[in-house]
């Protein structure tokens, strides 16, 4: 009997392989884990978009917040914008990183479309973006009370992403001790 069963081995191997490859088909190869997960938010010293004052990483620490990488040249950011406004209304702290953009254009955009951000870091040269491992806009980082990056979302934040992924994590981080 065992010899008989052995005949089925190639079939079993085949199905195992087929399952593995089928799973692979459904994965998005662009969805990379950030190298900065569980790392502190990188240090920076950059001007604020609204006030022009210099911002640094310590000044923004202390609460669970979203850091949204955006730019006026980024079309998806415009699509994402209304949802960020909605989140801000719900009381979710969102900081903007205005990535490789013209500050003047960015100010106009916020005046026109509304401003969901607590504050905006002007990253005109993309140096903070580089330290964050940003590959493009929009990207959104979830940072905990200690200033540690806990999650990165590449692409638009919308209802599905917020309800499905970000909000459960956000609520969990809120319950954590600082």
């Amino acid at each position: 009997m065992p010899a008989r069963l052995k005949l089925f081995l190639p079939l079993v191997v085949f199905f195992g392989l087929a399952l593995l490859l089928f799973r692979g088909l459904q994965l998005d190869p662009r969805e990379l884990p950030s190298a900065l997960i569980d790392q502190p938010f990188p240090a920076f010293s950059l001007p604020s978009l609204a006030s022009g004052e210099t911002l640094n990483v310590e000044a923004l620490r202390g609460e669970v917040a979203l850091y949204n990488i955006w730019a006026t040249w980024c079309y998806t950011c415009r699509v994402e914008h209304p949802y960020l406004l909605k989140l801000a209304q719900q009381g979710v702290p969102i900081y903007g990183v205005n990535y490789k953009d013209e500050p003047e254009a960015a100010r106009r955009w916020l005046a026109e479309l509304g401003d969901p951000y607590r504050d905006n870091i002007v990253d005109q040269k993309g140096t903070l973006g580089l330290d964050l491992g940003v590959t493009g806009a929009p990207e959104t980082y979830l940072v905990d009370k200690r200033g540690v990056i806990r999650y990165r979302h590449v692409g638009e934040v919308n209802e599905r992403v917020w309800k499905g992924t970000l909000e459960p994590l956000y609520d969990e981080l809120l319950r954590e001790d600082s």
Binding site: L32, P33, S34, A35, L36, L130, D131, L132, G133, T135
Partner: peptide, 8 residues
């Protein structure tokens, strides 16, 4: 580079 973008 790896510190920012991972082994990838």
């Amino acid at each position: 580079m790896v510190a920012r973008y991972g082994e990838f």
